[in-house]
Simulated scan of single mutants.
Amino acid sequence: MSRSPQVGIADGNGWRDHLAERADAIKSAGRWRSTRTYDSLGPSGTLDHGPDPVVTFASNDYLGLSSHPAVIEAASAATHRWGTGAGASRLICGTRPVHDELQAELADWKHTEAALVFPTGFAANLGVLTVLGGPGVRIVSDELNHASIIDGARLAGAEVAIYPHLDLAAASALITEWPGRSVLVTDAVFSMDGDAVDMEEAVERCAQLGAALVVDEAHSVWGPNLSGPAGPLDAPPVVRVGTLSKSLGAMGGFVAGPRAVIDLLVNAARPFIFSTGLSPGDAAAALAALHLVRSPEGRALVRRVRAHTDRLTPNHPSPIVPVIIGDEHRAVAASEDLLDLGYWVPAIRPPTVAPGTSRLRITLSAAHDDEHIDGLLAALDRLGLR
């Protein structure tokens, strides 16, 4: 016989108050967020059902491939052939021929023995770090690494050591003092500052110290990059993590590296084993986008977004250009002022960035035209933001 719950716990064990208190704390700190609806195909659309179009400089669709006709057609054709979802995890019955094709192309692109596709880039980082980490391993991580790297390191059950941003000498010291195996993990391009690691130095230091290297290339558009295999077969692994959702304009993530690492991920990476496989449409879209990236058209798109970036900040290493404001409220106000002028550049504030470093994060895309860039520069000048 079922028993009705004891509501003598009048407030549900304090949950109602707890949730309200947490929400109030965020609101009182001025950090409450909500999603905004952007209706667009490409860089211009309507925001929150407003009447006037705005141009976004917030998307990570760096090459504009999410709206490329060939990418859309590939997703449509795959969906008609295999359906909207994979139906199961990849190890059960969720692997389709397009997954195999995509992985082979990714491995060739990244000059590695093999590659493995995950449902998201976040899942890819969780998978690789929890498999390479563990008891007796030290994960040495840049202090500004992406949240997925931070969470993967925490879940790995390894010793975690943080080094100052881009200070590879400090990272080497943390590796040297550890008696066991080490993994150096770093973003290639950092998502909030748009700066980049010295990839050659990172590879050289790891090879000298016998440490594995994991590089998250999610925001790499024209580099830094690894040009080929790193070291002999018995060298510590160099593992390249990437996303299908930024420069490739689709959805998903991947890990590329030595066959031994990829085979182990298939058998031990929980985000791979226990997640439904990437949808066939997303896999096909990513494959079509990758073909474009590796073509003359793709190289022209890279040159275009680089030219846009140089108009804001010459020789900047990525299409991510921060405008540091500092105060959170001023950053939000600056974002709203830009929006009033027709340009959507969201404010980035704690906890995404450190207190006192709130900013506007401008991201450039090959989908922007010269008129978009002209307008943004004029708006920034008008508001005294550059």
Rank of each mutant, 00 (worst) to 15 (best):
M1K: 08
M1S: 13
G8N: 09
D11M: 04
G12D: 14
W15V: 14
H18E: 13
L19F: 13
S28A: 15
D39P: 01
S40N: 06
S40D: 09
G42C: 07
S44K: 05
T46Y: 03
D52A: 12
D52Y: 09
F57W: 10
S67K: 03
S67L: 00
H68R: 09
S76R: 15
S76H: 13
A86Q: 04
G87Y: 02
S89T: 12
I92E: 11
C93M: 09
V98C: 07
D100T: 15
A107Q: 02
W109Q: 03
E113K: 04
P119E: 00
L126R: 08
L132E: 04
V140A: 08
D142K: 02
L155C: 12
L155H: 06
A156H: 08
I162K: 02
L166G: 02
A171M: 14
S172W: 01
T186N: 06
D187K: 05
S191N: 08
D195G: 02
D198Q: 05
L226D: 10
L226Q: 15
A230Q: 15
G231R: 07
A235T: 02
P236M: 01
P237T: 13
V239P: 09
L264D: 13
L264G: 13
V266K: 13
I273V: 10
F274R: 06
S275K: 03
P280F: 12
G281D: 12
G281M: 05
R294Y: 01
R304S: 12
R306C: 00
A307C: 04
A307Q: 13
A307Y: 03
H316P: 07
V321N: 09
V321L: 10
P322E: 00
A333I: 06
S335F: 01
L338N: 02
L341C: 08
I362E: 09
D374L: 11
G375C: 05
A378C: 10
G384P: 11
L385N: 05
